[in-house]
Simulated assay, not measured.
Amino acid sequence: MKPLVIDTLVKRYGDRVALDALSFTVSPGEIFGFVGGNGAGKTTTLRIAVGVLSPDSGVVRWGETPVGRPEAARFGYMPEERGLYPKMTVAKQLVYLGRLHGLTAQQARESMTRWTRRLHIEEHRDKPVDSLSLGNQQRVQLAAALVHDPDVLVLDEPFSGLDPLAVDAMSAVLREKAEHGVPVLFSSHQLDLVERLCDRVGVVHEGRLTACGSLAELRAPRAARHLFLKVDGAPGHWPADTPAVASFRPQDDGVLVEPAPGSTENDVLAAAMRHGTVRHLSWHQPTLADLFRDLVEPAKEDTPA
């Protein structure tokens, strides 16, 4: 298996720069999560990766070979928008797409049977796609990306609209493909899933890659900066105007606190105990959502409520 290399992509739409020298590599057997806000450049990147769009400059390579039509034919692509024939039955559609990718009629039929069973949509094989729920249409779309046994997977928002069981089924498929050496690249706004599934993550903002690495690597510069506290009975303004606290961010069930320079967790604990009963205190490991906010939001001071 060969890596998928995104090398210095530039794409403009009029005066707007959609991609600004964007580069990263997805290694064989790696699940790479590609995250960013709306309009950050995720879909443009994925479309260029599979040959749907052309960059203004830069190149996509599969190993050492620039991706052209023969290479892209070995990719499995799942667009964010429905790319299915709505009136065609699931079975006929998947067989047809398998044949387009060079499978024999028998191979295409066997692959359709295998993937509809694996994704728990076998009972829908003889139904037109537009009669299915959005979640089941999403499963069919994944089957369409997998039917020809691709060597690279490129998926745009594959978990959108799926229930938890479907998320588990799709996650298992992506892990299995990666275990067989396939580079897996997918975008998602569901950062908890990205955090759970991915070996590495790339964060794109305004067409630029602002961070790339494993979750541990992304956390390293930001680790152990904040304490998470649950304090019963504390007044609503706490911990504003607390000398031991440099900044804070309320959470659903507590508050994240950054100790002031020269202050320790003991100083924060002592201040908290003066305002209520401390039920929990621990150093906070930032989630991918926390890291994403830090990377793409302008720095700003926390202000008292």
Score class of each variant (00 low, 15 high):
L174N: 11
P243S: 07
V201G: 01
L185D: 03
A224G: 12
G213Y: 05
D151M: 07
L215E: 13
R222N: 12
G202W: 04
E217R: 05
P243I: 07
R225N: 08
A224M: 06
G202I: 08
L174I: 05
A169M: 08
R222W: 15
V194W: 03
F186S: 04
L229M: 09
R219L: 07
H237S: 13
K177Q: 15
D151H: 09
R200M: 05
D232N: 13
A166T: 11
D156L: 08
L191H: 01
R200I: 01
S188W: 02
C212G: 04
R219W: 00
R219N: 06
E206I: 00
E157M: 04
R196K: 15
D168Q: 14
A169I: 11
A223V: 10
V201D: 05
P243F: 04
H205Y: 11
R219I: 08
G202N: 11
R222S: 12
G207S: 08
L197D: 01
P239Q: 14
D192M: 01
G207N: 12
A178S: 06
A223M: 11
A178E: 03
C198T: 05
A224K: 13
L185C: 05
A223C: 00
P150K: 09
S214W: 04
D149K: 09
M170Q: 15
H205S: 14
P150C: 04
G213P: 08
L229W: 07
A223I: 13
V173Y: 01
T242G: 02
W238D: 11
G202V: 05
G202R: 12
A211W: 03
H226D: 15
V204M: 06
S160Y: 02
P158T: 04
K230H: 14
D156M: 09
L193H: 02
F228Q: 14
G236H: 14
A211N: 03
P158E: 00
R219F: 01
R225E: 15
D192H: 12
L193V: 06
D199F: 00
V182E: 13
L153D: 09
C212R: 07
A178F: 00
E179N: 14
G207R: 12
Q190E: 15
A220R: 15
G181E: 10
R208F: 00
D232G: 12
A234N: 07
F228V: 12
R225W: 00
L174K: 11
V184W: 03
A211Q: 14
D163W: 02
D156Y: 07
H205V: 09
L191T: 02
E179G: 15
H148Q: 12
L218Y: 04
L209D: 07
A224S: 13
A169Y: 02
V201Y: 06
V154D: 08
V231P: 06
H180Q: 15
D151Q: 14
G181C: 07
